[in-house]
Design a protein around this nucleic acid. Sequence first.
DNA 1: AGCATATTCAACCGGATGGTTGACCATTGC
DNA 2: GCAATGGTCAACCATCCGGTTGAATATGCT
Lengths: 111, 111
Amino acid sequence: MSDPLDHVFAALADPTRRAILAMLLEDDMAVTDVASPFEMSLAAISKHLAILAEAGLISQEKRGRVKWCKLEPDALRAASVWMQGFGQFEPVNLDAFERFLEAELGGAGDD
Amino acid sequence: MSDPLDHVFAALADPTRRAILAMLLEDDMAVTDVASPFEMSLAAISKHLAILAEAGLISQEKRGRVKWCKLEPDALRAASVWMQGFGQFEPVNLDAFERFLEAELGGAGDD
DNA sequence: AGCATATTCAACCGGATGGTTGACCATTGC
DNA sequence: GCAATGGTCAACCATCCGGTTGAATATGCT
């Protein structure tokens, strides 16, 4: 019932969470360090991180008493593909999508 | 304080709304026709459409007593750009594409 | 052991969301 | 004019969401 895209897009809908992702782009961070620039409680940030982790957008690994947060751009990939489908589309249907895909596979490298 | 991305991602977070977008990919539709495949009230669909319109993902034009809904793929572009900015990843991968087809178009458009 | 640090848990709160229903315009057609 | 059709509005409900606070749980330090 709940498509993974539900969680990804819902996670991305919050500006705090998008800011967190932007921070994690530069480096892995501990929860406390993620929280420090924000004007809200640590618990709130902890919840945001849980939501991001649930969506697969980050992973969390506990080393000692510190939990490290790491960006997982792979989860963004599915959502990105979903959106590009709409962007490239001509008002027909899947044919155009297939042409689009073939062009991508032919022009860009392999995965 | 509300970034347009907030609205776009929030709008995309609901599977009903994504299904509506997928339907509108094929053709412009009247509100009643958008609603017909869904097992929920017309009022509910009307709200969903309002949310999509608020996010700029569709436009609505009233001709006579019929309100036509039209996909506006341009609104997706900003969100897509945001994600590309994140992405050290290639824009397309086949797995995600196939998942997209099954989950979104296969389920919604073929009822 | 005892205390500080890192993080989560639990309860709570106000406000948003997704849905319902019934009443309410607006437009079309007999 | 009046009834059917297309769509929204308003009130309501249950649930989720984003935030708070205070207590609880781990782990590390001395």
